[in-house]
């Protein structure tokens, strides 16, 4: 019986909610129980927004995550807020384009991904979240690369140009 708890965090516009939804959908397609929980309401502009995703072999008691197995942080305030919320031995994926400092803790794995720079070199800063998704899939193997790609294909079935861009972003992330 396995349960993976993932927190995605960043500022508004970085595709944090979407990244969480993509992860939850991947879990759902794999026949797992999934939940997705957003931070809602009183978030401030420039501050952090986050979504919490649980993928499990059994029923999910609460969609609220206290300690996460994996945390994806896309900006500095998110790192400050969530570094302490990663389980011992867990993984933190950080957007090194926007986070100069490093992880203080020694008991978690830190993966640095220049997601924003990669996205901007691909021509669209908005796909930084998909770069991070690629890094997540490559580092944690929560789903296979092919399953993730086939989901992207379904997501962008009617938008060929966007599909190519997102596939590129994903593959760049995989390479990290």
């Amino acid at each position: 019986m396995q349960t993976t708890r993932i927190i995605c965090a960043g500022f508004g516009g970085q595709g944090i909610m979407t990244l969480g939804k993509v992860l939850a959908t991947l879990g759902m397609k794999n026949g797992k129980s999934v939940s997705w929980m957003p931070s809602y309401g009183a978030e401030v502009r420039g501050g952090t927004a986050h979504s919490m995703v649980i993928i499990s072999d059994s029923d999910i008691p609460s969609p609220v995550i206290d300690k996460a197995d994996i945390c994806i942080v896309m900006n500095k305030p998110s790192l400050d807020k969530f570094e302490s919320r990663v389980k011992k031995g867990g993984t933190i994926i950080l957007n090194s384009s926007l986070i100069e400092s490093s992880v203080k803790r020694k008991d978690i794995n830190a993966v640095k991904v220049p997601a924003t720079e990669i996205a901007s070199s691909l021509g669209n800063i908005k796909v930084a979240n998909i770069v991070a998704l690629g890094a997540l899939v490559s580092k944690t193997k929560i789903v296979s690369k092919n399953k993730a790609i086939s989901l992207l294909k379904e997501f962008f079935a009617e938008k060929k140009a966007l599909l190519e861009l997102n596939k590129k972003a994903f593959n760049e992330g995989i390479r990290i």
Binding site: A24, M28, V34, S35, M37, P38, Y40, I60, P63
Partner: peptide, 10 residues
């Protein structure tokens, strides 16, 4: 409650 309203499930 707020959790039920906000969370996504299949």
């Amino acid at each position: 409650d707020g959790i039920l309203g906000q969370m996504m499930e299949p």
